Computed example of a mutant assay.
Amino acid sequence: MSHRFLAGALLALGMACAQAQSFSFGLWGDMPYQKAGDDPKIPALLKSINQSDIAFSIYDGDIKDGSSKCTEDIYASALAMFGELKKPVVYVPGDNEWTDCHRLNNGGYDALERLDYLRKTMFPTTRSLGKRSMALAHQASLGEKFVENTRFAHQGIVFATLNVPGSNNNKILDEKDCTQKSARTAAQCEASNAEYLERDAANVRWMQEAFSQAKAGKARGLALVIQADPGFDLPETEGIDESQAPGVSGYRNFISKLITETEQFAGQVLLVHGDTHFFKVDKPLYSPTRLLANLTRLQTFGSPLIHWVRVSVEAKNPNVFTVQPVIVKQ
């Protein structure tokens, strides 16, 4: 099934590249958090998105806060929220709805069981969510591992979403990390690390295929959307290489492969993530003193900042992507 979707997406990309023109899309995530009292603010947010000129939006994970239970109504509420959007919306999984569900204050679930439930619930069809949906290529068939990784092309730009969540990408560092404030057993932690390795390899393949598709279609830009802040080293932390911290080790392989692909791509790469909850646009790679010029990182708003980001793709703009925060008045 996924191969048929991929073939269709490649054809669509070729047509789109021949007819490239300007458009805009939206980015949002890490909301609503009940603990922060976000629910009353969501209608204004959805109204703002619905009244905009965007072609579609992408939600970069965390449909609830990290200290509430992973009950089935949480997923149903998120689907209802996405169903209020007039334009297509693509959902990306976050750590709060599966990786962290092992926590005692989350209900002490088996995180891998919650991931399986998420895959079967949050991806009910091969199309996007929203009142008006659009076709998506998926890495797997409905209900199967990695169905959540999607890809599509729009007006000559390739978009890929990947299940790269917070909490170190579900990589567990040691026994203390396994059991702290958690209902996990040693066997569950071992299974989680095996899951991390398998999914990380799948994510790298999906990302590499997105670059291949972009190159084949001579796309001017590629947007990759994940949930986790992968721990880039920041200029304001001079002397401390945050990218090498143990707590972000689960992202190093993916980022390394991303760098390699970006170096070999002639267009612009926009890497989008949430997780840290404050708006930021920068060029964090390779380091504070060495630039990977064609990669831009966009970090979206998150609770309690209930806003979204509008990105414009302009046909004649050499930077391809223009980022604009949209502040929602409450």
Rank of each mutant, 00 (worst) to 15 (best):
residue 3 H to W: 04
residue 6 L to N: 08
residue 8 G to S: 12
residue 10 L to F: 10
residue 10 L to A: 15
residue 12 A to T: 11
residue 16 A to Q: 07
residue 19 Q to S: 14
residue 22 S to T: 08
residue 24 S to Y: 11
residue 26 G to P: 10
residue 27 L to D: 04
residue 30 D to I: 07
residue 34 Q to V: 11
residue 38 D to F: 01
residue 45 L to R: 04
residue 50 N to Q: 09
residue 61 G to P: 01
residue 69 K to W: 05
residue 76 A to N: 08
residue 77 S to V: 00
residue 79 L to D: 00
residue 83 G to R: 08
residue 90 V to I: 15
residue 90 V to S: 03
residue 97 E to V: 09
residue 100 D to F: 03
residue 100 D to K: 04
residue 101 C to E: 03
residue 102 H to I: 05
residue 104 L to D: 14
residue 110 D to R: 04
residue 118 L to D: 04
residue 122 M to F: 10
residue 123 F to Y: 13
residue 125 T to N: 10
residue 126 T to S: 08
residue 129 L to Y: 07
residue 129 L to P: 02
residue 132 R to V: 15
residue 133 S to P: 02
residue 135 A to K: 08
residue 136 L to R: 01
residue 146 F to Y: 13
residue 148 E to D: 10
residue 148 E to N: 13
residue 154 H to T: 12
residue 163 N to E: 15
residue 164 V to W: 06
residue 168 N to M: 05
residue 173 L to R: 07
residue 177 D to N: 15
residue 195 E to F: 14
residue 202 A to Y: 06
residue 204 V to I: 14
residue 205 R to H: 10
residue 206 W to L: 01
residue 207 M to Y: 08
residue 209 E to H: 12
residue 215 K to P: 02
residue 220 R to V: 08
residue 223 A to H: 04
residue 227 Q to P: 06
residue 229 D to G: 12
residue 238 E to W: 14
residue 238 E to S: 15
residue 250 G to K: 05
residue 252 R to C: 09
residue 252 R to F: 14
residue 256 S to F: 08
residue 259 I to Q: 07
residue 264 Q to E: 14
residue 283 K to N: 12
residue 301 F to W: 04
residue 309 V to Q: 05
residue 310 R to Y: 15
residue 326 V to W: 03
